[in-house]
Amino acid sequence: MTHLAVPKTYKLFIGGKFPRSESGRTVEVRTASGDFIANAAKASRKDARDAVVAARAALSGWAGATAYNRGQVLYRIAELLDGRRGQFIDEIVQLEGVSARDAAAQVDEAVDRWVWYAGWTDKFAQVAGNANPVAGPYFNLSVPEPTGVVAVVVPQETSLLGFVSAVAPPLVSGNTVVAVASERFPLPAISLAEVLATSDVPGGVVNVLTGSPAELAPWLAAHADVNALDLVGAGDTDWVDLQIAAAETLKRVLPPEQGDDAAAPSLDRILAFTETKTVWHTKSLL
């Protein structure tokens, strides 16, 4: 019996749902050799706006969850991602034109990075926070808190690993994320969104836009309700202009990085999206 090929339609991921682009636009995604794979949505500025609204709405719940709970949720993503290993390997092989062995290595590395970041949720505060010595009978405690809504232009050269490496760190401390996926290799990002939608991540904590970073990033950079901007994958855009636009509303900004190891795992990437709160408390009531 012959089987009818069913090409998948890849949609956006906003607020825990998979809407088409408000604009109705799509882009054809092709293999390295030029064969058609699927249509993916091409997000517009209004999709970016909706994603920011969803991220803002999800912030209090995610930032308010206990660090232990966030760690469990992030670890669960790694579990589900590993369970769909085969699908991701196929997609990466098709899209990037690499060998199955290299694709498998990329998926494994992505899983490892989720696990690594999941472990940090209830530990980074001990490293970055402090009990400050003060001249008086007071506790003076500094603790890192999430910055808020973080817009991320993910690394463009790798489809899955770049996405995971850029999206996971802001989630650790309780930020919510609007991610602009790789323009050339958007499919694994949306497949990962399917993993997120079926894991325990609350809707709106991660929002994924596929389309042109050059078109979307300026709207996110100038958006007054976005608190931080990670330009790690924006090296090919006018990123200086993005930084200038972001400065208008005092965002935290990370600069572009080039190469295969863009957004390599580090504690600094977690701490880049935190704000330090310092509180005084008297010792005498003890």
Binding site: W219, H223, A224, D225
Partner: peptide, 14 residues
Amino acid sequence: RQKTLTGHYSGPDY
């Protein structure tokens, strides 16, 4: 209104 005047999206902080 702020969006119409400034050309970029505003937020509840404003």
